[in-house]
Amino acid sequence: MSRFRTTRVLTALLSAASLAVALTACGGTTKNDSSDDQGGGSQATGTADPEAELQEGVKMAFLPKQLNNPYSDIEVSGGEEALGELKGEYKLVGPNDASASSQVSYINTLIQQQQDVIGIAANDPNAVCPSLNQARSSGIKVVAFDSDAAKDCRDVFINQATTQGIGEKLVEMASKLAGGSGEIAILSATANATNQNAWIDVMKTELAKPENKDLKLVKIAYGNDEDQKSFQEAQGLLQSYPNLKVIVSPTTVGIAAASRYVSSSNYKGKVAITGLGTPNQMREYIKDGTVKEFALWNPADIGYLAAYAGVALVSGQITGKEGEKFEAGKLGEYEIGADGEIVLGPPTVFDANNIDDFDF
């Protein structure tokens, strides 16, 4: 997969977060909140020094949506690789479910443990906000990745690709598989998932365009990023909508579960499955004809980029403001865009012709 080595340039200004109100901690000591302690301006303030030397020994904890999720496992592995290169300390914590508030207690514990950086894929953009703001008030940098937290609760956000680009690609694939007309359904993760909802909003806008007038979105179902729940939701969609042509699942858990159901049912060859999945997860369904094509980026690169951004924040190379640049190891140079967003790059479409070229 392309490593997207060219500079990413976005537009608009970053809205700086005001964190004047100190929230109550859950106990234990906290980090000094001065900018000197972190090697640069805290909470997206101060001046970045792009020539600052990257610090060694940076402690960064990754908090994915849930543990034992194949996609999240790949993501955080990239973070572990990067921190190894940077001579930092990698830590992985997280819940076993993807509920809105399940991450809060882990954030509070990481504050007590005096981590330098928290990397989080937020299950809910607002539920984690008070605890993340407490972390930032304590001098901890916050890097959201994959699924954003509220903008005033983190320093930067590592986005897989532009929200617009992902939403457009999902509709493009659905339209192609449906032959330009007919009923489609979406099998999402949780109802509060930031990234899922943003992509779905773009999909709705795309579906409202004249060129897609013959496509009808009949249902948005939620599998909660749980395999069995997603499997059951896929089954329910097909039973409820006998004329359904395509299920679009913008979550790796959902697309695999839907594919597994269709592959062993009478719907195989009649209902198409597409969305976002990993090549290793989806290879068997491409090979047996259940799935014609799907899309994704390299999830490990998201964690890798998040780790480099976290260490750059601690070292003072960046503060999270638009226009700041930093080097991300093998991925090359990146530029921070509007609202602290750092975009990995465009998604890749996988099909029978190229799926064996990838191993993740």
Rank of each mutant, 00 (worst) to 15 (best):
Arg8Tyr: 13
Lys321Ser: 11
Lys213Cys: 00
Ala307Thr: 05
Val248Arg: 10
Thr45Gly: 01
Ser72Asn: 14
Ser99Thr: 15
Val128Ala: 08
Asp116Asn: 15
Gln43Met: 13
Gly180Ile: 07
Thr190Ala: 07
Ala312Asn: 15
Thr29Glu: 15
Ala174Ile: 10
Leu244Thr: 01
Thr24Asn: 05
Glu341Asp: 06
Gly167Cys: 07
Ala328Thr: 10
Ser265Tyr: 09
Ala161Glu: 11
Glu81Leu: 13
Val311Asn: 11
Ser181Ala: 14
Tyr261Lys: 06
Thr348Arg: 11
Gln164Ser: 12
Asn108Tyr: 03
Asn68Lys: 13
Ile318Asp: 06
Met203Val: 06
Glu324Arg: 07
Ala221Phe: 00
Ile247Gly: 07
Gly323Asp: 03
Ala328Phe: 09
Gly41Leu: 00
Val171Lys: 01
Pro125Gln: 06
Ala100Glu: 13
Arg8His: 11
Met203Asp: 02
Ala189Lys: 02
Asp49Glu: 07
Ile220Tyr: 01
Asp73Ala: 14
Tyr90Lys: 03
Ala191Asp: 12
Val9His: 14
Asp148Glu: 13
Glu183Arg: 04
Gln66Asp: 02
Leu10Gly: 10
Cys153Asn: 09
Val271Leu: 07
Asp356Gly: 06
Gly316Asp: 04
Gly79Arg: 06
Asp225Thr: 11
Ser263Cys: 00
Pro125Tyr: 00
Glu75Tyr: 02
Ile111Asn: 01
Cys153Phe: 12
Tyr308Glu: 08
Val9Gln: 15
Glu51Tyr: 08
Phe326Arg: 10
Asp201Ser: 15
Val142Thr: 05
Ala234Thr: 03
Gln228His: 04
Ala98Ile: 02
Glu89Lys: 14
Leu10His: 11
Gly332Arg: 06
Thr190Glu: 12
Ile342Gln: 02
Pro250Ala: 02
Pro279Asp: 06
Ala221Pro: 02
Ala178Ile: 04
Ala193Trp: 04
Gly179Ser: 01
Asp124Pro: 00
Asn133Asp: 03
Tyr267Phe: 14
Val9Lys: 15
Gly269Ile: 01
Ala256Gln: 12
Ser72Asp: 13
Lys245Leu: 08
Val291Thr: 10
Asp37Met: 12
Val246Asn: 08
Tyr304His: 05
Asn197Pro: 00
Gln134Gly: 14
Thr30Lys: 12
Ala272Lys: 15
Pro64Phe: 09
Asn266Val: 08
Val271Cys: 09
Ala295Phe: 02
Val314Met: 11
Arg136Lys: 06
Val248Met: 10
Asp201Phe: 01
